[in-house]
Design a protein around this nucleic acid. Structure first.
Lengths: 222, 222
DNA sequence: TAAATAAATTAAGTATGCTTAACTTATCGG
DNA sequence: CCGATAAGTTAAGCATACTTAATTTATTTA
């Protein structure tokens, strides 16, 4: 019996884990999911019984390999749906998250694989978040640093945009910044910590607040 | 609070009504939905309380205007999703029904309108079933007769394919038959009641069994 | 180290949407 | 018009996924 709630728990645990690697406290899970702690106790016991998480009273939970596999599957659905809605229907990135949040639970293996194929098996979405493949494998990623912490004169590639709340991806798109775009740091302005950079001969200044949200990896010519 | 079960009941009642216009018996609803009669009694009472159906003990149910509006909305979602999956992802008609059955419940007004726009506001799906518009209005339809009951020599347009179980639409597509296609009846063969017809200079024979499933309306040159 | 406090669990209860079994209505045939 | 039968309803119960309130466990700090 498939359960949407279970999928939401699993996904949340995965995301909270991958932050600091340790086990996830029931209390913070409750807050993230917007339910009571009692509900979490209930559900974590069920998930443990199904072998999706390890859970001990008063100790918190973390995913088993089986649970992680499941989490990756849900994330795959989510990111492919997002990308598909943007590509096929021209929705904005800001509009797409909530739709995917629903659709991800009701998409057959068959359908999501067709969407994957339509998109030509993408490895990253426009936030730079990796998309697990149909076997739950994540693409390799390089070391990433915030644009606000780069050194002048070096070349970088944009590889992630942290866009939890706003429609930042849509905004950056307008100034020419997207995943895979190459850029050179000209300088960091002492005054307000903003960053001046060059993209295809064009010079752009980004505020510190935005530069913090853009992650890049160093471009070494091989 | 939105309920998927409720939506399924409403949709089913709509479809059973539109057949013979009268009220729908609890027993047959139960069979169609694959639940117990007791479950139907329960749910119909709830639907009545919400003003979606008229229901009296031992008398059956029929939709109120509010319920009908809701039914049309769900059918709209279903048919647009089907069409979209076929058009955008190249799925076959046989593959598409079950997916739409899930997705229809989890699609925002916003998204379904974008899908509608993508498809250029279609009035009929490839079965010839009408697609309600965003105000719940159905497109006008002409009188339809089965291809197996047409008279020789006359011209017709295909306007519906009854394809409850199989992938008939996909099959007919291969021989050149689809919604809106014009054809002339050459003759009905006494032998097996098959129908010989002409589509764009090409002659085709359809078995009685298939001809029964294809609905056409007479083509009068105006 | 023991008391205070924070975190988690248990207990009891709710709503939804089902089930089966027993009972009630309605209707149809003789 | 009355009894058999079919159709529908009631009653009790189950699973899921929650809630609040009371209680227990763990941790911190004085």
């Amino acid at each position: 019996m498939k359960s949407i709630s279970q999928e939401d728990y699993i996904k949340r645990i995965y995301k909270m884990q991958s932050g600091n690697k340790s086990s996830v406290a029931s209390g913070s899970l409750a807050i993230e999911l917007g339910v009571s702690k009692a509900a979490v106790t209930d559900m974590t016991r069920k998930l443990a019984k199904e072998g999706l998480i390890n859970y001990q009273s008063y100790k918190g939970s973390f995913l088993t390999r089986k649970g992680e596999r499941k989490a990756l599957d849900i994330i795959r659905r989510h990111r492919l749906w997002e990308l598909f809605l943007v590509e096929a229907l021209n929705l904005n990135w800001a509009e797409v998250h909530d739709e995917a949040e629903n659709l991800e639970h009701y998409t057959s293996e068959f359908l999501i694989n067709r969407i994957d194929k339509y998109l030509n098996f993408p490895e990253f979405d426009p936030h730079g978040d990796p998309i697990p493949d149909k076997n739950g494998k994540l693409p390799k990623t390089r070391k990433r640093i915030q644009l606000s912490k780069t050194k002048s004169g070096k070349d970088f590639v944009v590889c992630r945009v942290d866009d939890k709340n706003a429609g930042l991806v849509d905004y950056l798109g307008k100034v020419g910044i997207g995943i895979g775009v190459k850029l050179k740091i000209i300088e960091r302005l002492e005054f307000d910590n903003s960053v001046m950079l060059k993209i295809k001969k064009k010079e752009i200044v980004l505020s510190e607040k935005i530069a913090e949200k853009v992650f890049v990896s160093e471009l070494k010519d091989e």
